[in-house]
């Protein structure tokens, strides 16, 4: 067993175990953290496959951004685990059937070899993935790149137009008005006769 093979089995074992824990642990925060571990192990495997750019991207985007947001959401929501687990037994037979079908199908695809999968060629180019992507991103793929930019713009417009609300009836504070306020604006001195103290009150 070479060192690379050892690394592969090492990361693969961590990944499978972590993925298993994601669905078996009771605490949702722990599940999210195990998902982070799964992603990191996957990123390591991709780097072993010489897809270092994808691997780094996975860590940056999924582990760094998506999962952190996910953790925030999980921590903020008051999720009742016991309630979520209700009906687990009744869904189990259907889930088992689906799972078995999927395993059989994947087995068929993998054993039939209809896809004629070959292992990737090692170090096919002398440049790194990052360099290769950088070379074509703004040249050969400038058109899809620009469309992606437009899609992001549309996402911003859509998100704002769907959520921005101006409610005239809402009461809110304006600090500048609060600072400018003078005593005379707030306090009115009324001169009135002194009243006699009533008995019993």
């Amino acid at each position: 067993m070479t060192f690379v093979q050892f690394l592969f089995y090492f990361f693969a074992a961590i990944q499978v175990l972590a993925a298993l824990r994601v669905v078996t642990v009771k605490n949702p925060v722990h599940a999210a953290l195990f998902l982070v571990l799964t992603f990191v192990s996957a990123a390591c495997m991709w780097i072993l496959l010489e897809a270092e750019f994808l691997g780094l991207l996975l860590v940056l985007v999924y582990v760094g951004a998506v999962m952190v947001l996910f953790l925030f959401v999980v921590m903020m929501l008051d999720v009742n685990i016991a309630e979520m687990r209700e009906g687990f037994a009744s869904y189990m037979p259907v889930a088992l059937v689906v799972a078995i079908i999927m395993v059989v199908e994947m087995g068929m695809v993998l054993t039939q070899r209809i896809f004629n999968v070959r292992p990737p060629v090692e170090k096919v180019a002398d440049v790194s993935n990052t360099e290769a992507i950088g070379a074509v991103m703004y040249t050969d793929y400038v058109y899809p790149f620009e469309i992606a930019a437009v899609i992001l713009l549309v996402a911003i417009i859509a998100a704002i137009s769907l959520t921005l609300r101006r409610r005239p009836a809402t009461k809110y504070q304006t600090p500048i008005e609060q600072i400018k306020v003078r005593r005379n604006d707030r306090v009115r001195l009324v001169s009135m006769k002194a009243e006699k103290k009533e008995n019993g009150s």
Binding site: Y143, I147, A148, V150, I151, A155, I157, A158, L162
Partner: peptide, 17 residues
Amino acid sequence: FLTLYMGLELLSLSLYA
């Protein structure tokens, strides 16, 4: 394939909104 898919997503996203 790439431009077709991206055009479709641009269309769909605007339509969802």
